[in-house]
């Protein structure tokens, strides 16, 4: 229903018309596609497919959650996440769809469960994407640090306590002649930047603060958030030459 049309309706009609639009059904051959008022990360509606089988109905998500993951190259994550979600909702899954077979008396709840599961699987993977940039930088970072500084003085994925007494998980600690250097891989996502910035500020308040170095993929891509990171630490890019790393800990 067009927004302009709704604006000209009485209030009750707006609500009732909108409510009727929340669920849509389309039949294609023997298969019904039902759009539910549950949104996937793309803004599309979770959609279930209902097909007749001998014992009743097969309800599945038509692979629409899988398609969302495939769009961002994460389709291999479907199976692992589908297993966890399917267990909690007592449904099944195969390589690309979430599915359950039911009789007519269970159809209502099965449609709800598959719709919820479809969103849950997609959301679980997309929420991890924000951390993936950070993980990719970290993988590369540890190799670089070992090559440049050697492994003896390096501690990977360590915890360090800040002035607040809060422990911070950091990508690596490097013991230098003058003290300690903290390396933290930072992705472009706001959460990654805020977490690193908060940790760096807390560490900077220690009596003998370590040198704090944020390692990012692309400084320019951070925009104004680069300033935020630089307030409490040094910032380098992961593919800069070795001497930049050496200068960063000096």
């Amino acid at each position: 229903m067009e927004g302009e049309t709704l604006k000209n309706m009485p209030l009750d009609d707006v609500v009732e018309t909108t409510a009727r639009e929340l669920v849509r059904v389309r039949k294609w051959g023997q298969v019904h596609y039902i759009n539910l008022p549950i949104t996937l990360p793309s803004g599309a509606f979770a959609t279930v497919r209902v097909s007749p089988i001998i014992s009743g109905f097969r309800v599945d998500d038509g692979g629409f959650a899988y398609r969302e993951l495939e769009s961002v190259g994460m389709e291999r994550s479907f199976g692992r996440n589908a297993t966890k979600v399917a267990q909690s909702l007592d449904i099944d899954h195969n390589r690309r769809t979430l599915t359950v077979d039911v009789g007519a008396d269970e159809l209502f709840r099965a449609i709800c469960d598959i719709g919820i599961a479809s969103r849950e699987v997609a959301e679980r993977v997309f929420s991890k994407l924000a951390e993936q940039d950070e993980a990719e930088i970290e993988d590369h970072l540890l190799e670089r640090l070992r090559k440049i500084f050697g492994g003896d003085r390096l501690e990977a994925s360590q915890s360090i306590v800040g002035s607040s007494t809060n422990p911070w998980e950091v990508s690596a600690l490097l013991h230098t002649e003058s003290g300690l250097a903290v390396f933290q891989a930072v992705g472009n996502h706001a959460n990654s930047i805020y977490r690193a910035s908060t940790a760096f500020h807390d560490l900077s308040e220690l009596p003998n603060p370590p040198i704090r170095i944020a390692v990012v993929k692309d400084k320019a891509a951070l925009g104004a958030k680069l300033n935020m990171l630089a307030q409490a630490g040094r910032v380098i890019e992961d593919d800069q030459p070795d001497d930049v790393y050496v200068r960063a800990v000096a």
Binding site: A44, F45, S71
Partner: peptide
């Protein structure tokens, strides 16, 4: 859909998409 990816990464980044007569009932913006 237009998709980009770095050769070393498994992740891809869609940068634009067109849907024609989607079975998912359209789309809702945040």
């Amino acid at each position: 859909e237009l998709r980009c990816s770095a050769p070393s990464k498994k992740r891809t980044m869609p940068i634009a998409r067109i849907e024609w007569r989607s079975l998912q009932g359209g789309h809702s913006n945040r």
